[in-house]
Each structure stands twice: as structure tokens, then as C-alpha cells.
């Protein structure tokens, strides 16, 4: 799947409103580039200082980047900041982009996002509101929902306890549905190294979640 030319889900609305102040054109279009300009074309315009092209590209890629950042950071506010910072790097680095067809913009962007997330996780943590668990629903009919939420919490915790690179590999390959080759590019590793991280992560997760077996019968 070539993400560079695929419109992202729910991006249409965001693209329309984010790009609107800069458009002399209908939202989502760019003078001379047609209704769905590719990433390379937009990057060429951004390199010339075109804000509308920047808004379109940012709105196109922000949702996936935000999802990735939130999975890695576990915090929506931090994820938004990281993606915003990554987008600014797109603005300053667009002139260095070489559209040779080998590298996909989304892979490059996700690499930047992952690196920024890793940097942010190494800072002293601030316990924001996102870290406070929601109060449980007291109604008896919610027992099953609560049990499922409890299991999901245990899984999240097990994921969070993985070593950083294992967690990144799992996030990219299992949750972001990236291939091992893509994940290897994003993490600046070989494919076999990514496969090794995934295998170790699965072993660790299985060991940590062994207690869930009796409760759910899932493992």
C-alpha cells in the first residue's frame, strides 16, 4: 500500500479546516497539482516556503503519526507535541528531501516521531491527567466491561514494561501494521534485528501475561 497517495481516514475534515486559511483554492487542492498531490510534490512546494502545501501534508500524515506517538508515549498531550515538532522538522528539512522513489515520506516521518518519542521518554516524567485511571463504572451490568478493561490494562502494563526497542518493534509491526522491513527502516535496524526484537517481546509478553490465562483462557 502506498501511503503517499492514499488519503487518510478522517483527514479530509482536518485537512479542509487546517488548510483553509492559506488556500486561495478549494481545500484539499493546490494550484497546479490537482486534487490529490503526492507527498513528493507537496514537499517540493514546502521547500519553496508554501504553507498551504505544508498544511495539506501535515493534515494527511498527522493522524497516523499521532497514533504512533500516543502508543509509544501513552499520553495524548505529549503525542500531539511530538507530532507538531516532527512537522516543523518537515518544514525545515523539506529542501533536503530527494524524491528518488526509494524512501517513503511516511517512513521518514515515523522515524522522526519515534526518535522524538524516545527522547521524550528519557526526560523526567510528569504525571499529567492522562496518567490518572478513569473511575470504574459502578453499575453491576458493567462487570464484563470492567473485566475486559482490567485485562486490557494488564496487557498495556506488560507492553509498557518491555525494553524500549522491543516495545517500539511491537508497536510498529503489530499495532501500526508496518512490515518488518518498514520497521527496520524506522528504527535504523536490520530486518533480522527487528524480527529478533519481536520474538523476544512475544516471549516476554507471554511470560508476563501468563496470569491472565486462568482468568480469560486467552493464552
Amino acid at each position: 500500500m502506498d501511503e503517499s497517495v492514499q488519503p487518510q481516514p478522517r483527514v479530509g475534515t482536518a485537512s479542509a479546516s487546517a488548510a483553509a486559511p492559506y488556500a486561495g483554492n478549494p481545500a484539499g487542492t493546490l494550484m497546479g497539482l490537482g486534487p490529490e498531490p503526492g507527498d513528493d510534490a507537496l514537499l517540493a512546494r514546502i521547500a519553496q516556503g508554501d504553507r498551504q502545501a505544508f498544511a495539506l501534508l501535515a493534515a494527511r500524515h498527522a493522524p497516523k503519526a499521532m497514533k504512533l506517538a500516543q502508543r509509544v508515549l501513552g499520553n495524548a498531550a505529549d503525542a500531539d507535541e511530538v507530532v507538531q515538532e516532527a512537522m516543523l522538522r518537515v518544514w525545515t528539512g523539506a529542501k533536503n528531501w530527494i524524491p528518488d522513489g526509494r524512501a517513503r515520506f511516511s517512513t521518514w516521518l515515523h522515524r522522526v516521531v519515534v526518535n522524538l518519542c524516545v527522547d521524550r521518554r528519557r526526560r523526567p516524567a510528569f504525571a499529567g491527567l492522562d496518567g490518572i485511571p478513569e473511575p470504574p463504572d459502578p453499575t453491576p451490568s458493567a462487570v464484563n466491561v470492567m473485566a475486559r478493561q482490567q485485562t486490557a490494562k494488564l496487557v498495556s502494563q506488560a507492553l509498557a514494561e518491555l525494553p524500549e526497542r522491543q516495545r517500539l518493534a511491537v508497536t510498529l509491526c503489530y499495532y501500526e501494521e508496518r512490515s518488518a522491513a518498514d520497521a527496520a527502516q524506522i528504527l535504523s535496524l536490520s530486518v533480522s534485528a527487528v524480527e529478533s526484537l519481536l520474538a523476544r517481546a512475544r516471549r516476554a509478553l507471554r511470560a508476563r501475561l501468563s496470569g491472565v490465562v486462568q482468568d480469560t483462557g486467552e493464552v
Binding site: 478522517r10 475534515t13 501535515a58 493534515a59 498527522a62 499521532m66 507538531q84
Partner: peptide
């Protein structure tokens, strides 16, 4: 990831 959040991030970057 709501559209409002995406708008906010893009607008902030702009």
C-alpha cells in the same frame, strides 16, 4: 485521534 486534535496539531505547527 479526532479531527479536532489533528486540526489543533496542524494549526499549532502552522
Amino acid at each position: 485521534i479526532s479531527a479536532a486534535r489533528v486540526d489543533s496539531v496542524v494549526a499549532g505547527a502552522l
